[in-house]
Design a protein around this nucleic acid. Structure first.
Lengths: 185, 185
DNA sequence: GTGTACATGTAATCCGTTACATGATTCC
DNA sequence: GGAATCATGTAACGGATTACATGTACAC
């Protein structure tokens, strides 16, 4: 087996999604990314997904076929992972160096600049962040429940439970920080 | 006051660092970013910092002066925030829309693809991640202790305590996940 | 008939990194 | 003398986004 090509992580994420399914369109992948990858990675834009799909196909990691609807007009293209693609993805998971986790927390960046901020602004920002974390937690929980039904989703399910706890913690830590900032101003 | 220019978050982060200090060189800023921003945002490369400094100066948000060492040979350039820069940064903190937090967790991405992974690989990855989180926690704690001494660092101090709890949680959640994965394979 | 979802793709642009280039200073 | 740190910057490149362009299907 030749060494798998050097590809950006996004490509492996897309290929990884394909490895969980039979056949998906670019549109499907975007929708699915919004509801799964989104929790712990990030959801690439449509244009990025279409570009990665072409690249994956060029490398022989995916195949596609054009599909027309019953009325024969509307076209779409369905992608599936190939054996070579599965091998490459497996190799990537098992052997590629693991990139450091990236955290870009613009709420904390603003709190770090609290000496420039109006106290109420910091409270509002944190309140909004608490809502965001709670929404994400709920969504992840619903997804985790969905995954629990199917043994094929054991790993995604475990990761989704990690996400539930992660957003729970995110919510609680924001509450703590809000309380702490209230004692400052 | 004219509206502050549209700048990437990195520019505001650099300007924010300048707002915490008297005068800093690009090199100083990079070193400082590695030990503060790094915990909750990310540390731009040297070249990025130098580029942002030039842009900030162009906008009148920072000034610089060349400094030569006692022997008169070695040169460096020290940057300071201007009044306009402080006003712009304040406006950004108080009024710019807050970007959604970005999380790109490549460890979780690989766990999500656990059906492709060797069980031992997942254990190793998580063990390494636990070490990473613990190291970050310790570093953040040391920094938070340092900040506690000075009332000027109240906000950075509060954020650093948030970081300590965040990395603590990150460590614990990775342990939980490792235990859960062990029951799967 | 209007808005929403389905469906794909191009072009322009920007953010940011890596590699490269250069050279002084300080500590061992 | 050699390594690590201080110190700045350019050039090439790539990853990714936004805006734009286009059109169908379906529900209300």
């Amino acid at each position: 087996m030749t060494d798998p090509a050097e590809l950006p992580t996004t490509a492996w994420a897309v290929l990884g999604m394909l490895s969980h399914a039979e056949e998906l369109s670019g549109y499907d992948l975007k929708k699915w990314a919004d509801w799964s990858l989104q929790f712990f990675y990030w959801s690439p834009s449509f244009s990025q997904i279409y570009a990665e799909l072409k690249r994956l196909e060029k490398h022989g990691y995916a195949t596609s076929r054009a599909v027309r609807s019953a009325d024969g007009v509307r076209g779409k293209r369905m992608y599936a992972i190939t054996a070579a693609g599965r091998a490459a993805a497996t190799h990537w998971v098992n052997h590629a160096p693991v990139e450091a986790p990236v955290l870009k927390h613009s709420v904390m960046l603003r709190a770090w600049l609290g000496h420039l901020a109006a106290p109420q602004r910091l409270r509002d920002m944190l309140a909004q962040h608490i809502d965001y974390a709670e929404t994400m937690r709920r969504r992840a929980e619903a997804d985790a429940d969905g995954a629990a039904a199917n043994p094929d989703w054991a790993y995604p399910g475990a990761v989704l439970r990690w996400c539930v706890r992660h957003y729970e913690s995110e919510r609680d830590l924001a509450r703590d920080l809000m309380a702490e900032l209230d004692t400052l101003s």
